[in-house]
Structures are given as structure tokens and as C-alpha cells.
Nucleic acid binder design. Sequence first.
DNA 1: CTGAAAGCGCTAACAC
DNA 2: GTGTTAGCGCTTTCAG
Lengths: 351, 351
Amino acid sequence: MANIYQVAKLAKVSTATVSAVVNNQDVVEAKTRKRVLAAIKQLHYQPNLYASNLARGRTRLLGLVVSDIANPFFGELAHVIQQEALARGYEVLLATTDFSSKRLIASLKQMIGMRAAGVAIMTSEMQKQALELLRSHHAPAVFEDVGTADRHISNLRIDYEGGILKAVRYLVDLGHRNILFVKTYPVGDERGINFFSIRQRFEAFQAAIKSFKALGVSPQIVTYGGPGPLAGLGAIRKALSQSRFTAAVAIADPPALGILRGLREAGLSVPRDVSVIGFDNTYLCEYLNPPLTSVNIPRALVGHLVVETLLRMIENNEPGRELHVETELIVRESTAPPPNKRANRGTRRHS
Amino acid sequence: MANIYQVAKLAKVSTATVSAVVNNQDVVEAKTRKRVLAAIKQLHYQPNLYASNLARGRTRLLGLVVSDIANPFFGELAHVIQQEALARGYEVLLATTDFSSKRLIASLKQMIGMRAAGVAIMTSEMQKQALELLRSHHAPAVFEDVGTADRHISNLRIDYEGGILKAVRYLVDLGHRNILFVKTYPVGDERGINFFSIRQRFEAFQAAIKSFKALGVSPQIVTYGGPGPLAGLGAIRKALSQSRFTAAVAIADPPALGILRGLREAGLSVPRDVSVIGFDNTYLCEYLNPPLTSVNIPRALVGHLVVETLLRMIENNEPGRELHVETELIVRESTAPPPNKRANRGTRRHS
DNA sequence: CTGAAAGCGCTAACAC
DNA sequence: GTGTTAGCGCTTTCAG
């Protein structure tokens, strides 16, 4: 593969000139430039990125690591972040962990190895080790829910708690008293992972229920592991056989898919018999049958904040800061008052 | 950031030794190795990938470019390809084009710049330019439906035609005669793109219809641009106002979402009033209401073939070859015989 | 406006 | 086993 010397020789200039042309440094005479361009085309020259990054000593590369690209939420988020970064002249390197902390560490190492100018970690699994890794390299980073910001690390806090509270309150206002929290979780390949966002949503649910205790609201919990929709299905089957509830709150939209299906196969109608609320408000929600009520996380805002913050840290050497994003409940047709006369139930009616 | 010299100095060895340790070349005495490891840890040394790739002169990097990660099909495909590559000791660099041929070219250039050992292009937009680019660099590649294989390029052919034929035949066997093809397309940022897979599916539909002409089967076509589900919704609204059909075939699953919703909002029931068939058999299908009949493309097989073929070209210098993958119809609950007594219709019944 | 040349950090002969 | 050293291909002063 042609290199810069061959181009220089063919164009009868020095490598410095070729470099200037390639990088659009506006200091080359039009005539020379044209000659160089011709040589480049003729040799199909494509600069070696390793050599140029090595020589340059810095990159315009942002790392983004997410848990699971199969969840549309992450897909949409990755998309806006990429757009935003591109517009600012940065490339983004996307890595997926599949909820494995090993892969998280590996991805981070790769990004450090590629000397990414900044890194955004939007995973639900967390590891102290990941934090330390980044910290020891002084790589600007934004973590979701890492605790607190410091010199090189910004902390993005999404108001899961408020979102859950709004969801529960809405159900309570509709008249629901037996509310099920469907706590699904991915099955990673090792233990010791802190599925932070899951725990957080769960605790938020407990807190929300508690605040309505006086109204006689009682929580039901069902736990089930597996990939999104399947876990939701498994969970709801389990719940139907052991709990009584008139509403279910899912931890994310994909599990809600499974919940809807499980309810349907049990002969129950949504929202007539059971109300269902999802989380993340992915684009799927409005195309489901019935359209799914869900808690929205403003992806565009999150994406913008992440990139903006990263670039401020990178380019202006600003310290890490606290980012705060609100959530809201988007009401659709999967929620309604609980069945009127019927007693609460959780198993198939044999009517 | 610490470099290899500092590690070498601290460990009182040469850089060659550090390099050997880092790359697990089993030629270093345990004692020395331990010293080096300690130094690495102490300095938080992380090798500079640019330097090492530059020096090495080759990479274990596979490029993968897809159109749209928001379509779960591509997400799943990317996932299996990544798994497969990882297992063979390769990293994969994922790029998304958003159906823009500009971005296709840009992604390809980046991959060439990173000297990817091989590249897989699984996009529906195609450009001669992309082909030429790869060809001029002798980078092993596998294209979907590029035409024919040559020395450095393998051609993956997915039997869309057979899939569509199976779908149409199934509908015809059920008794449908007025079948709508919902031809949605992404709105890219420029013209001149060949949405190959779309055209192909469309032509396959026309051919299928033709083969049943004797039975009185007549095709309806509706065209609409936009992002998947939205395009499906727009298309079906348009179709309802102008055509008569008892079954609809979508070009992919996401548009089918929109179709289901559009039918519902028109007061039509699936499959009682209209049957619907999707394409790609993404995981969504079985969670929809009703579960969606769809044409399956065996992602695992495709992923395996792609990686296997690429590696053979890379490592054994084998020439490009023809890959062939079959499709099959997965029947679920969105298809049924057409309404019995009622005349064919396409507008809301005012009964 | 263009050229010469010193690195960037690492790898891989080759020598010891 | 381990050290020396010549590149890998590009960028970037600094001269001219």
C-alpha cells in the first residue's frame, strides 16, 4: 500500500507538502496541491492512521461504551452521541459490554490504548476498577451514576427516582393498590457486578410505594434473569402464579414486551385487567398494541450533555461536573383504572 | 502517559523484554517477567496501539459497516459477527452509514486507514465507488449482493427472492388475492443510492405475483419514505385510502410495526381483516400483538459465514467466493385467510 | 511556499 | 534470556 514517500516522490515534493495537502492546511500553492492530489489519486494513497496519530500525539476520538446495543434505548443514545460528536469534528468508538465487567475493562483499555480524547460510560454494570483505570490515565470521562464528579470525571445523574415515583403515583391515582415491580436483570458472565441502574430503579420503587403506604398501596416484587423480553415473559409468568396485582412496572421497555405477551397468553387484557408501564420510552412504545405508557429519558439532551461536557473537559481543561437530567411519564394506552368489581387477582380467570 | 521506555527503565530491562511481556511471548524468565509486570502496574502503563500497530504492520481488526443500527436485525447481526470475530482473536470496528453513501465511503476510508485486515459491508445502499475503493486496496472484503466474487471480494447472497416467494405463496394458499407490497425506504441525504436490497425484494415480489397470475392474484404497491416504523405507518395510511387488499407484505420488520398500528387505528383487525407479513424475523416479531409472521434470515449463519470467509481470505490468502444463504417463512399469528363474505376493501368499514 | 530531519512509541530481527 | 537498534509512516518545527 502506497505511503507518503511514494506520493511525495511522484509529485516531486517533500512529505511535508503531502502532509499539508492531506490535512487541508491552507498553505500549499494551488499548482503544487493539484500535483499532489493527482499523485494521491493515482496511487490510491490512504494515510496510515496509526502513523499519523502516533506522530500527532493526540486524537479526536471519543469512546462510548454501552451495555447492550439490542436495547433500542442504547441504540438511540449511541446515535445521538455520534451525531453530536461528528458535528464537533470527533469520531466515536463504540463498544458493547454485554453486561460483562470483563468486557468493560477490556473496552476501556482499548480506548486508552487508542488514546481516546474522552470516554463516556453508559453501562448499568459498574466496577471500581473501571473508575480507577480511567482515573489513573487522567482521561476525561463521563460516567453514569458514578457517585461524584472530580477533576477528570463528570457524573451524569438521571432522575430514575422521580420517574418511578411519577409512574407509581399515576397508578395510585388511577386507583391501583397492588402494584408489581418486575425486576428483571441480564445474566452476565460473572458475579460481583453492580447493576446500578437496576438497583436504583428498584429502590426508587420501594421508596415510592412507601410514600403511598397510607393509601393502602402494597408492593409486589418479582425477579427474573435473562435477555430483556424473555426475562419479562418469565417474570410475569412467575408473578401470575404467585402474586396478586392490577398493575406492573417494568425496569425497561424490552421486558415490558415480554410482560405484555405473558399477560396476553394468560388471557388477561391490558389495560382492562392489568396496567403496564415501561421505562426508557423507546420508539417501540408507540407501536405496541396497546401503546405502552413509559418513563421517558430525554436521549437527545443526554447525548448533547455528554458530548458537550466531554469536550469542555478535553478542550478547555475544565474539571468534571455534575449533570442532571429529569424524566417524565409518557401516558399511552397500557394504563387504566383497575378492574372495578373484580377482586384483585393474578391468575387466569376461569370465567 | 507512561511509555515503554519508562517501564523498561523502572524494571531494569530493555524495551524488547517489556514488549515480550506485554504480548505474552513466552520467552521471558518468570523473575524478569514479574519485575516488568510490577513496573507496568506501578506506572499504569497501557501500550499505545498506534505505535504498536504501526510497528507491527498488520492488525487483527475487522471492519463492519451496516446501514442502521436502529433496525434490530443489524444489531443482532453485528452482535454475532462480533462474537465470532472475538473468538478468533479479532476486534471489530463497527460503522453506521444512516443510509448515506457519503458516510459509507468515509467509513471505508477510515477502515482502510486503520488497515483493517478485512471488511464486511452489510448495507442496503451500494456504490461502485465503495467497491473500487476496496478493490484498489486489495483489502479482503465481503459485500452483500455485490454482483460476483473476485480475487479479494466475496459475495454474500441472501435469498430474498425465495423468502418473498414463500411469503406470497403462503398468502395465496390462504386465499388472498389482493396483496399489498409496502415498499418503504429510508430517506438518505442524497440521491443516486441504490437501495439494493429494497429493489431486490420489490422485484422478487413482482415476480412472485406474476407466477400466481393465473389464480387471479393482483399486486398492489405503496411507496413511502422515512424511518422504519414511521414509513410503515405512512405507507399503510396511504394504501388504505387508495387500494384494496387483504394482506400486506412489509420490506422489513420495523415498517411492519407501523403497518400494524395503522391498521389498528383504522379499526381493522389483524389477521381477521388484513394479514401482515414482515421481513427479517427480528426478535420483536414474537412479542408483537399479534405475533408477526416474518421471513427469517439466519443471522447466526450469516455472521459465521462472513467471519469465516474473511479470515480465510486474510489468513490463507484464499480468493473471494460466493456465499449463499437461504430464507424461510416463520408463520405466526398475523396471517389468516381473508375475510369470508366481505368484499375486499381497503377503507374503514362503517358497519 | 517548500524541504530536511527529528521524533512519536513500539516491534522484531539479530547479536550477545 | 535479554539487549541493541533499525525501522513502521506520518507530523511538525525550523531553515531556506
